[in-house]
Simulated assay, not measured.
Amino acid sequence: MLTRQIIHTVVQAALTEDAPWGDITSQTLIPESATATAHLVAREPGTFAGGEVFAAAMTLTDPAVDVDLRVADGTAFAAGDTLASVTGPARSVLQGERVALNFVQRMSGIATLTAAFVAEVAHTSARIVDTRKTTPGLRAFERHAVRAGGGRNHRYSLSDAVMAKDNHLAVLTAQTGLSLTDALRQVREQLPHTTHLEVEVDRIDQIEPVLAAGVDTIMLDNFSLDELREGVALIAGRAIVEASGNVSLATVRDIAETGVDVISSGALTHSVRSLDLGLDVVVE
């Protein structure tokens, strides 16, 4: 998903945004012949993500910059650990610094939060997955970071799977005049056998009519813990059970213990805090 082309396109746009006519500070203060070495150092513990993106921000600024990644994505680290080193023309290192840090700090923040969610449910079979609540233009980066933290990805885009939510169902049944089951069966018949069909329900009484249509996944949206347990028992393995809504680090363990298969959380990407990482120039 996180291809070299995507990395190049997004990072180049960020570099152009940050220095559309060059870095006049570095060009004014730093001699053209100066070189520099800098270390990417963790100010707090976490899980690393975004190494390739960090390196691209430096090398797209100047191919003469050399980046040595000390840890792989998905690696846990402690405060004070050196995660990467950068060597090259000082002007270029300083120009690429902010964009490189912005990406790796955010991606490592997402990986760190995801790892905390995953640890909370490790004693169950529930999978932690992200949502489409990502920063526009940065979905591939943010979802890569979720995987680095041990989580899984939901559908990547609207083109990947059929996911019928409450508004879809309201329009579908109103326009066709069919029952929920018959309307969904009609949808199922139109789909290739390779296309996944997921349906969101917000009431227990919707579960049986949806199951009767032969769906692949049922999302139990904003159900209480008791309702989740009831829903899991009712579905009884006839479809994948996803829980969504009101998912946080404080609630995810209890949700997992209801027996659901998947727990989706937009907080992994839309409410994350960037991790405190710094790029420290080595003075010799």
Rank of each mutant, 00 (worst) to 15 (best):
D261F: 04
A183N: 02
V247L: 13
G245S: 04
V282N: 12
S92W: 01
A213F: 11
V146Y: 11
L234I: 07
L172M: 03
A56S: 01
A36K: 05
V262P: 06
R143V: 03
D254K: 03
M107Q: 13
A183R: 01
H270M: 13
G22H: 10
M163V: 11
A76V: 13
T269Y: 06
H123E: 15
A256S: 08
D261Q: 07
P45H: 10
T181G: 00
R147V: 15
M58C: 10
P192M: 06
T3D: 14
Q12P: 00
A14Q: 01
S248R: 13
D160F: 01
S264F: 07
D216K: 04
H270P: 07
T112E: 09
A116E: 15
T114A: 08
A79T: 06
A174C: 03
I6Q: 14
A148K: 03
L279R: 11
G88M: 05
A236L: 09
G149K: 09
D254H: 08
S274N: 14
M219A: 06
F48I: 01
D226K: 13
V41S: 03
L180G: 02
N222H: 12
L40K: 03
V41T: 11
W21Q: 14
E17S: 04
T75G: 01
V93Q: 10
E44M: 09
L113R: 08
S108T: 12
G177V: 09
A233Q: 10
E189P: 00
R253P: 01
S264R: 07
G46V: 08
E198R: 03
R91S: 01
R4P: 07
T75V: 10
A243P: 05
V86P: 02
V41H: 04
S157R: 15
G150P: 05
I30N: 00
V282G: 05
L178D: 12
S26Y: 04
E17W: 02
N222Q: 13
L249Y: 06
E200W: 02
T217L: 15
T61V: 02
T134A: 07
Y156W: 13
A56D: 01
V118L: 07
A100M: 06
T269D: 14
L2E: 10
E142M: 10
V232A: 09
R147T: 14
D280Q: 13
V71Y: 04
G150I: 06
S159W: 06
K133T: 03
I263G: 02
I263V: 11
T16I: 14
Q12W: 07
G137I: 07
A111N: 11
G74H: 05
E200K: 02
S264T: 10
E189T: 13
D81P: 02
T251L: 04
N153H: 09
D216L: 07
I6P: 00
L279Y: 12
E189F: 05
A148F: 07
V104W: 03
A236C: 02
I6H: 13
G266L: 10
D276P: 00
P89T: 01
Q27R: 09
I240S: 08
H154K: 04
G51Q: 01
L191N: 04
D73G: 05
A76N: 13
D202P: 01
L69F: 05
D81T: 12
S264V: 10
V86A: 05
L220K: 10
L211M: 08
T135I: 11
A239Q: 03
